[in-house]
Amino acid sequence: MKRSSSRPDWGYFIKEGLTGIKMHGLMSFAAVTVIAACLLIIAIFGLVAYNIGVLIDGLASQNEIAVFVDENLSREEAQALQQSLESVPNVESVTFVPKEEAFDIYLEMLGEDAYIMEDLREDNPLRDEYRIVMKDVALHDETVEALKEVVGIAAANSEKEISDKLMQMQRIVNAVSYTLVALLGAVSIFIISNTVRLAMFARREEISIMKMVGATDGFIRIPFIVEGMTLGLMAGLVAFFAQWGVYDYITEKLVESSGIFSTVAFSEIWSMLLPIMLASGIVIGILGSVLTIRKFLRV
């Protein structure tokens, strides 16, 4: 019984795998394009979700709450609230911000457009406020409620509501992303499997001869897995660069048009994104080719 198990000849496997891609150049090109498009769509949603996540994290880490003093109170009465606020549980520090100062801060925030509001200085529409820093961010909701209970406090404001809205949005984006991963992932695997099937069909003669002379299934399989994997890898690479362009374009437009949205720069995420894209491509390639090969090699 000859069971020579010599080391695999990778040069041969790779050469054969690439031959398949060249042989069906147009088909391979189409497959790479469509899969790259699928990966791109998934990645766009993924990055939207990622950006929302970063925003939420940013907001959640802000443990400051602003409470506003009832405008019917005099300045002295307003300043007297300091002690009652300090006695609220979970309060770390309390800083009084008179409405004049609040107005300055507001103008500063507006920057170049501040002159529009300058006229209002005499008739300041803002209220005196307190900036409160919490000890424990986890007790946020309870603390806000307790602060509102303090007599003379008209309203409490925090980033919590925006954060909640964002979280809701994140859930939706996540759900869409997962659906897309399943759907477009399946489409991509199907495309790879079809391309590899074509390659195997074109070489069925060779395959049957290889089987008759005693090539193992593994040996016959490898060039086709290499083919599928290479197609997937190319799609991943194309999708990465496309993503780069699309992402930069979108973030630029977004920042231009709203000014308030802060986004993560591509330079900060590419090193995370590239391996993910390439790995996804490879996984799709392997799954697609293995599915086809299993069917083909039976008998």
């Binding site: 020579s4 010599s6 695999p8 000849d9 003669e205 049957s208 001869i209 040996f219």
Partner: peptide
Amino acid sequence: VVYQDFRLIDNKTVYENVAFVMRAVGAP
């Protein structure tokens, strides 16, 4: 096995047709 219809691979040379089955069984 030598088949009646030979079953050679048309786009491989004589040398390749023979060498290919050695490669198929993992010969160096």
